[in-house]
Design a protein around this nucleic acid. Structure first.
Lengths: 339, 339
DNA sequence: TCAGTTGATGGTCACGTGTCCATTTTCGTT
DNA sequence: AACGAAAATGGACACGTGACCATCAACTGA
């Protein structure tokens, strides 16, 4: 393996000087810089970051833990963060927790072992691993939450304006004349960390809308869960006239269920969902969606983390919110008059 | 930062013994092992892999370079590989090359700098970086190609039975009575490394089907490219009666184009595509698809790479093919009789 | 011309581990 | 009880870098 010493020898300078050609080129004479640069190319030298990591105490590596990388939301986030991070000379280690605390802990251990410089995390529900995160932070890893945050979390985060978006969605349906609106979300009290799930009943209440007990079965974030919940809702004696899905993942299951019941959108039931996935505009009718600015969020997260690392200010807490955008395509309409 | 020495001191043993509790527990007395294990938990000790990496020469890290992580094919692959790799104690660093050699080279540099133990690559077209890969290999990184392989590549790979699948697809359409079949694929001679693109004209020929010049404009792998190519094809004086998309990504663009032209599937045009993405069964009609066993492929890739690393046999070349499966859902039918 | 200053370059050491070899302890056999 | 072998444990060192301090040359201003 070529080391900086090989480069130094070849260029006829000391190792220290050779390294400066990479890290602090402004300190060198043009001539020296040139010679070293040539030696580097000639030898195909690439600094060993594992050695640097050992010396520095962290690895020039950012960890990204997502909920489920198969969901386009996280796939897009991963890509954006990966690009942003590479652009600043860091590598990205990814893991997904599948919304499970136990798996999450294993992943955190792995990140710890690799001495990631920073960690962008979409925690699983529950706050089981907050202690571990705090310990990681004490040991020098900058931590930022994304898409969701733990109760009593001391860390910064990058989030959607969740409450505002839920409000926007419900109001939109209400303005169309809907009274019986069901959300595919989490009603479970223990899991109330979910902002969208928390916001929904509040908005309903503030608009003076009833929220029947029968509508308050929480779906999981899975396609399957949303599928069966939707079937169940639409078979009620008083089924909702509008369904509001809180994630694009759940939307796929719900859409499948609606089709299976041979209900027409929007004539029989209106349908609104978070996330604009590639299929949401391909189905018939194309779906009304609330778009999250995933790219902006990913870039912001990467920037916050790397800025903090580079300025060696691990105490810095940045909390940022991004607005969503409602796009109307025709899957929501006034409810049909019935009698 | 807690080190193995802290653990050793706490357990009243030497550092060497303490490390054995982690790496070679079978060498220790039950009692000693127990004491060390307790010390480890008490101190929340997590071995520093950056130090180990330096000593060992590689980082217990696997690099995965995909074409475009937003495509569900790669997202699923990433997840599977990540899980498999974690299960064996490795971390996964991801990067996507966006099918671009220049970006790819940057990523390879990054992988090199991090001294990844192994690398799973979906190369960009062209063989610009084969030299770099060879160099990486000489320096101790095990390399495996996936989904595609470079001309004259000395490395192992994990691939779909591409030719067989194209054959299966074209035959399926031919058996339904189609004569004018267009593929969304690459016809570009320079890029003939694409197995599906290479197979298509061959199969057509072997079935005695004409392949008009007008059908031979290569699409890129992008949704956009497929969209405009499909528009163009369907506006020809003699438009194809069946369209065969070579990736799920292109399928989205093609489907959009067909809808925009208000053509009915399968009455006006039959549609078949590789990849079973979540939307392909949600649209109307649900699409006939050729499924790739992504999970099997990802697991196989991870296993091949890690086995080779652990057995220290970097010369080992494994080449594995996986079959695809054709699923019929109703987007292909006999062409309408016309006069 | 010389002291003081700045710019350019060089040398040393520690980071925490894995590897190799050395030493001590335990066990089985006679 | 004594010996050799095997099991268990310990010590020393190197991996390539970044941080820090040391040295040397070039320049400035009086």
């Amino acid at each position: 393996m070529t080391t900086i010493h090989d480069v130094a020898r070849k260029a006829g300078v000391s190792a220290t000087t050779a390294k400066r050609a990479i890290n602090e080129p402004q300190l060198l004479t043009k001539a020296t810089l040139e010679r070293v640069t040539q030696a580097i190319t000639a030898l195909n030298y690439e600094p060993d970051r594992t050695a640097g990591a050992l010396r520095r105490g962290h690895s020039h590596t950012i960890g990204l833990m997502v909920g489920n990388i198969i969901e386009p939301f996280f796939a897009q986030l991963t890509r954006t963060v990966a690009k942003a991070v590479h652009a600043r000379g860091y590598a990205l280690i990814v893991a997904d927790n599948e919304y499970d605390s136990k798996l999450e802990l294993e992943n955190l251990r792995m990140f710890h072992g690799h001495r990631v410089s920073g960690l962008i995390v979409r925690s699983a529900f529950g706050s089981g691993n907050l202690e571990y995160l705090k310990r990681l932070h004490e040991q020098g890893t900058y931590i930022l939450e994304i898409d969701h945050f733990l109760a009593d979390s001391p860390f910064g985060h990058v989030l959607l304006e969740n409450a505002e978006c839920v409000d926007m969605g419900v109001r939109y349906l209400h303005d169309l004349g809907h009274k019986r609106i069901a959300a595919l979300t989490v009603f479970d009290a223990e899991k109330l960390q979910d902002e969208r799930g928390k916001a929904f009943p509040n908005v309903m209440k503030s608009l003076g809308l009833r929220l029947p007990k029968a509508y308050q079965h929480g779906a999981t974030l899975s396609e399957e869960g949303a599928y069966s919940l939707t079937l169940q809702l639409l078979r009620l004696p008083e089924p909702p006239t509008a369904i509001f899905s809180m994630t694009g993942n759940e939307a796929a299951g719900a859409f499948r269920a609606i089709r299976e019941l041979k209900l027409r959108i929007p004539e029989d039931v209106s349908f609104l969902t978070f996330d604009d996935y590639s299929w949401t505009s391909l189905v018939d009718p194309p779906l009304d969606v609330i778009i999250q600015p995933i790219q902006d969020m990913g870039l912001a997260a990467a920037k916050i983390v790397i800025d903090a690392i580079q300025s060696r200010d691990l105490k810095k807490v940045v909390r940022k919110r991004f607005p969503g955008t409602l796009i109307r395509r025709g899957s929501c309409a006034p409810p049909k008059k019935k009698k």
